[in-house]
């Protein structure tokens, strides 16, 4: 899923400082699963903003709503009738949400309430870790299902570097050295030979380096 973190309240308060009436809109997709932009978090943010503005003597009316997904024009259409009732709309979806909303309703202002961080999953309750860099050309089959592009701090395809320290990365003891894991797994499975050839340089054209990306699936495109 796409993982995100809530922005500090002051940052959001600053975005809406001139508003009298706003809509906080969550998303039932990834941000609900990572507990950052679902129903609960929408309520918490709305209430926190109201408290802050009450203290400031400039009360804020905040309506709450959660869309099925904000990355889908079909679900965004639901707020068509009401979207202009507000001075601004605060989106708790990943970075995709406020952009889809902005494109659908150019007359309204949309603000992000979260910082979108990475593609990953929960390794335990309350802890999420990055697993994918979205480079556009998956290579994890060469590395027994572990991705050095996303998980090596230097994206080395021929690691580990000299900074690998007892299974941890040189940048932090909190970060695993993925190359240590790759090598150990290959050794355990008796397939160390897989790592003896030099992996050629990656073609980054399929990654963000090739410019903004687009996926086109002819069989799904409807005429007209």
């Amino acid at each position: 899923m796409i993982v995100a973190d809530r922005k500090p309240l002051n940052e959001i308060l600053d975005m809406v400082k001139r508003c009298n009436r706003i809509l906080v809109v969550g998303c039932k997709g990834c941000v609900t699963v990572c507990n950052v932009g679902g129903l609960k978090e929408v309520q918490i943010l709305a209430t926190s903003l109201k408290i802050a503005r009450k203290i400031g003597g400039f009360p804020l009316v905040v309506d709450e709503m959660v869309l099925e997904r904000q990355c889908d024009t079909e679900y965004i259409a639901i707020i068509k009738e009401t979207v202009t009732d507000y001075d601004a709309v605060v989106s708790m979806a990943c970075g995709v949400g406020p952009q889809f909303l902005s494109e659908a309703y150019p007359e309204q202002k949309f603000y992000p309430a979260v910082n979108t961080t990475f593609f990953g999953g929960a390794v335990s309750h309350g802890i999420w870790e990055e697993r994918c860099a979205g480079c556009g050309t998956c290579v994890i089959h060469y590395f027994d299902g572990l991705c050095p592009v996303a998980r090596c701090s230097k994206s080395l395809l021929n690691g580990p570097c000299g900074g690998s320290d007892h299974g941890k990365c040189e940048i932090s003891r909190e970060v695993d050295c993925i190359w240590d894991k790759i090598v150990r797994k290959k050794v355990e499975q008796g397939r160390l030979d897989d790592l003896l050839d030099v992996v050629p340089a990656k073609n980054w054209q399929s990654a963000r380096d090739g410019g903004p990306r687009r996926s086109r699936r002819e069989e799904l495109i409807q005429n007209g």
Partner: peptide, 10 residues
């Protein structure tokens, strides 16, 4: 829940 405590404050 968090919201119950915040609602009380609000």
């Amino acid at each position: 829940d968090i919201i119950h405590l915040l609602k009380a404050i609000e």
